[in-house]
Design a binder for these strands. Structure first.
Lengths: 246, 246
DNA sequence: ATGTGTGAAACTGTTCACAGCA
DNA sequence: TGCTGTGAACAGTTTCACACAT
């Protein structure tokens, strides 16, 4: 049987990508429902991923009170992407720049925030409070960007009730109710590979629509549920390949 | 100034970052110097990343004593990549399959091991023993695939001497000597963004040729040094985008 | 004079479909 | 017959280069 697309979601999957990205089986996305653009082109996945980087650079620039305006050339220097790429990426979503001038840092930042959907906090459930899960609980960059781990769950009964900061580890059985009552819409899978599919099934049943999977296995989700994957082994093995066949 | 490639290495970068990307600014790679192939095509980065997945699937199949031989269709089911992709990916490196039959699990596994350069253990230096770094110290999948964290370093003097398993956290000043004397050839950056470039510079000076960067910033390395990046913020913001513009 | 936005070209990766070998 | 390996078609992404707005 030939599977034309993988099980990431109804579209394609990176894995890294990573990726990993790529990394990805590159695939385009439906046009976003944002105010700016009455455009209808399909947005390349890599464009969206680069948007995150642009946004972070803008935040840094604003924090350092750096010079306005920002040209695509300057952004190229700051990100390593080409200036043409910067302009093309942004132009997918609207005409944010002024010809002969550049982009307004504050304005562009605001636009990217809306495009990326990070103009409001996201509440996240974390499942699997092992080594990696614990690290994620205190990962500062999540909170800095408006992502809040609002619940921590684990199948291991000996961990239940244990507190990390203001979070208390709860049994898996509580996930569904928590999602409903605590406005949780994303989830992170940080369990061993052999438990990942089971955990994902529970998440999907609970109504989670976006899942970030750290387990080194492919998991299946129904259409309409989005799945991203971070696979550390792929990253390090890719380095191994580069070093071996340099 | 227009930068045609980013600062990942002399070729391109995912970033998956991920890679995004990976994920990536897709770019091809020089052909690997492996025994099998007298081929000379450029190998797509995503092909190499998929190789890791194939390899893991093969390990699992062998462990469960699963049926020989393995067809590209079966591999497609197990990985989510298309059968054509599987065949094309493997064919870059040699003729591993038998027509009308499929691939020998043990043989293919061995070949992939050689291609990926994981036929021998890699010794890795970890810099930054914070939350993420600590989690990586006990990340089982690294050791399972033959990657050994052989040294842990941190700039924080209060952490020096602390032990994690058999590892003792050492000051940054010891990195260079450790790399030379302890056969370390890869390094992981798990420090905050503002320290990342400094740490990378030290690694490069010490002779490290492959770096996995978890800090959410672009860092520069000279040509000949390979750099991969895992950016959790990009991953989760990509999910946010998908959920917002579904 | 400067830097954006964008057609068009170039490039890279994926899919199709089938010849050919076991 | 079954399944690989691959040329050729296709699709998606990046780069070029320049018209146009400021």
């Amino acid at each position: 049987m030939t599977v034309p697309i993988d099980e990431r979601d109804e579209a394609g999957d990176p894995g890294w990508d990573a990726s990993t990205n790529r990394r990805p089986e590159l695939r385009s996305l439906p046009v976003p429902a944002i105010a700016h653009a009455a455009r209808l082109p399909r947005i390349p996945e890599m464009t969206v991923r680069r948007l995150s980087t642009y946004y972070r650079v803008l935040r840094t620039l604003e924090a350092t009170g750096d010079a306005e305006p920002l040209s695509s050339d300057r952004m190229s220097d700051l990100t390593g992407f080409t200036a043409a790429q910067v302009r093309r990426d942004l132009a997918y979503f609207g005409n944010f720049g002024k010809r002969g001038v550049g982009y307004d840092i504050g304005e562009l930042q605001e636009s990217l925030k809306n495009i990326l959907g990070i103009n409001h906090p996201w509440r996240i459930a974390l499942v699997g409070v092992g080594n990696l899960g614990t690290a994620l609980l205190s990962y500062r960059n999540f909170t800095a960007q408006g992502f809040v781990i609002a619940g921590a769950f684990d199948a291991d009964t000996t961990k239940h009730g244990r507190a990390y900061g203001s979070l208390i580890i709860r049994p898996m059985e509580d996930l569904s109710v928590a999602v409903r009552d605590e406005n949780i819409s994303m989830a992170i899978v940080a369990v061993p590979g052999n438990e990942a599919q089971t955990v994902v099934d529970v998440m999907v049943a609970a109504g989670i629509k976006g899942i970030l999977n750290f387990a080194p296995v492919k998991v299946r989700v129904p259409a309409g549920v989005h799945l991203s994957r971070v696979d550390l082994s792929i990253e390090i093995e890719y380095l191994s390949y580069l070093l071996t066949n340099g």
